[in-house]
Simulated assay, not measured.
Amino acid sequence: MTRYLGNGAYCYANSASMLLSTIGEDVEPGFFEVMTGFALGAFLSESNRIFFDSCSSSPDEGVNRAFDILGFHVQEKVKQDGALMPLDELREDLAVSPIMLGPLDMGHLTYNPNYRYVGGSDHYVLALDINVQEIMLHDPAGYPYVWLPLEQLDLAWKAERIKCSQGSYRYWLSPERIESPSVELVYERSLRLFQSRYKQQAIYGTDSNYVVGTNAILAKAEHIRSGNLVHGEIEHLIHFALPLGAKRAMDFSRFFAGSHTQLAHLKELQARLFGKCQSAAMLQEWCVLADTLEQLSEVEGEFEAAVTAL
Rank of each mutant, 00 (worst) to 15 (best):
F256Y: 14
D122L: 06
F67W: 06
D68W: 06
L193G: 05
A42T: 01
I130D: 01
E46S: 14
G213S: 05
E300F: 03
A16Y: 01
W286H: 13
E179S: 15
E300D: 06
A271K: 03
S56H: 03
G6D: 14
Y124T: 00
C55R: 02
E92P: 09
L310R: 10
L104Y: 02
T206C: 09
E235I: 15
I50R: 00
P59K: 04
Q270D: 10
E285L: 14
K158W: 08
F51H: 08
S97H: 07
A66K: 00
P144L: 11
N112H: 15
S15F: 02
W147S: 11
D81Y: 13
C287V: 12
M1W: 12
H236D: 15
Q195L: 11
H108F: 09
E235F: 14
E89V: 09
S208P: 05
H223Q: 15
H223C: 08
E233F: 08
P175V: 07
E176G: 11
G258P: 12
N228T: 15
A39E: 02
F51W: 09
E160D: 15
G102M: 03
K220R: 11
D53V: 03
V307A: 05
N14L: 04
E151Y: 11
A305D: 13
S165F: 15
M35P: 01
D129A: 15
A290M: 07
G232L: 14
S21H: 09
Y145A: 14
A156G: 03
G213A: 07
S182Q: 13
L229M: 14
I162R: 03
H123P: 07
P140H: 02
V78T: 15
L193K: 09
N215L: 07
R192S: 14
L218Q: 00
K199M: 04
M100E: 04
G119S: 10
E184K: 15
L126N: 02
C55Y: 00
K276E: 15
M136K: 11
E92N: 06
T2K: 09
A264R: 04
E28R: 12
F240R: 10
K77I: 14
A290Y: 09
A159Y: 00
E300V: 04
S56P: 02
Q152L: 10
E302F: 12
H239S: 14
P175F: 10
S279Y: 10
D68I: 04
Q166K: 13
A280K: 04
A309R: 14
H239P: 05
D122S: 07
L44C: 04
G24Q: 07
V132Q: 14
T261P: 06
V96Y: 05
A280G: 10
L101I: 06
N7L: 14
R225K: 13
Y204T: 00
E302T: 03
G245Y: 00
L20C: 09
H138I: 08
S54R: 03
A42S: 08
F52Q: 00
E304W: 01
I224R: 02
I224Y: 04
N112V: 06
V125K: 00
Q166A: 13
G30L: 02
G301F: 00
L90F: 08
Y198N: 06
V27N: 02
